[in-house]
């Protein structure tokens, strides 16, 4: 009996912990939004964040997309062969990349590359009292650290997703044309004809949402870091896990909202 009670209590604690964390993250998000619309604005920090979140992520996004697009073409071809549907490769690559894999993979790569670095950087600043120093220098850490990074995520990740979509489709095209014997012109024509505006908009909206999630989680867990090197490590790990899970959850909800309304 007491064993059961202990077990239930443990589950209850976990659930309460989750609820509390959800509340704190919601508050943090609200606070970020509030600081976004109130001066001062730190343009230099924003510029640096755009470079770090967006520009320097281009190589990893490009590589991820090109390999995924290529593999997708092979899979669809071999899978499609089971019911004589090899010809749909261009259409399915396009829809798969633009609607789903482009945004999700870019989002996850950003979580791995950007969320972790933001969390580790801010957590180290916290541990070495740099955040306290910012406050004493009349600079709000939310305005100086969080807002520029989250804005950079909001603006640059959709662009990265757009680039990832195009490169992914090119990966499929290269495999389709060179390996699977598709006609180059009709491959491209099929892709362009098949995609709808809604596919592209959903892709970019997902990118914006994932960009916000990834950067916000980095800032949130960094700011809440515990003390010492262990605190920094734990903050980094939690931020990446939370960002990845939230990106996948948001992806489900957005897909539902865009295509099943």
């Amino acid at each position: 009996m007491s064993l059961l009670a202990g077990f239930l209590a443990a589950i209850g604690r976990v659930v309460l912990g989750w609820l509390a964390a959800t509340g704190r993250i919601a508050l943090f998000t609200g606070e970020t939004l509030l600081h976004m619309v109130r001066p001062p604005f730190y343009f230099r920090e924003f510029g640096a964040a755009v470079l770090n979140v967006g520009y320097f992520s281009l190589p990893v996004v490009g590589l991820t997309a090109v390999f995924t697009g290529g593999a997708l073409a092979l899979q669809i071809y071999s899978g499609g062969a089971r019911f004589n549907a090899e010809a749909v490769v261009p259409q399915i690559v396009a829809i798969g990349m633009v609607r789903e894999l482009g945004p999700v993979l870019v989002g996850l790569m950003i979580a791995a590359r950007v969320t972790s670095s933001i969390a580790a950087e801010i957590a180290t600043m916290k541990v070495t009292e740099q955040i306290d120093a910012l406050v004493t220098l009349s600079t709000h850490p939310m305005k100086y650290l969080t807002v520029p990074r989250v804005l950079a995520g909001l603006i640059t990740v959709p662009v990265l997703v757009g680039i990832g979509d195009i490169i992914g489709i090119m990966g499929g095209y290269l495999v389709g044309v060179n390996r699977l014997g598709f006609n180059p012109a009709s491959y491209l024509q099929n892709t362009v004809d098949f995609l709808e505006l809604r596919d592209i908009i959903s892709s970019l909206v997902k990118g914006a949402a994932f960009g916000v999630i990834a950067t916000l989680m980095g800032c949130y867990f960094g700011m809440r870091s515990g003390r010492g090197a262990q605190g920094v490590g734990a903050a980094t790990k939690s931020s990446v896990v939370a960002a990845a899970v939230l990106i996948l959850a948001a992806n489900f909800l957005l897909t539902q909202a865009f295509f099943f309304q």
């Binding site: 600043m125 009292e129 740099q130 306290d132 120093a133 910012l134 009349s138």
Partner: peptide
């Protein structure tokens, strides 16, 4: 923020922005 503009603080560990 206005309150803190009157202050200067040297932290024990320096706390420089690296």
């Amino acid at each position: 923020e206005a309150f803190l503009t009157r202050f200067g603080m040297l932290f024990q560990g320096g706390a420089l922005f690296d």
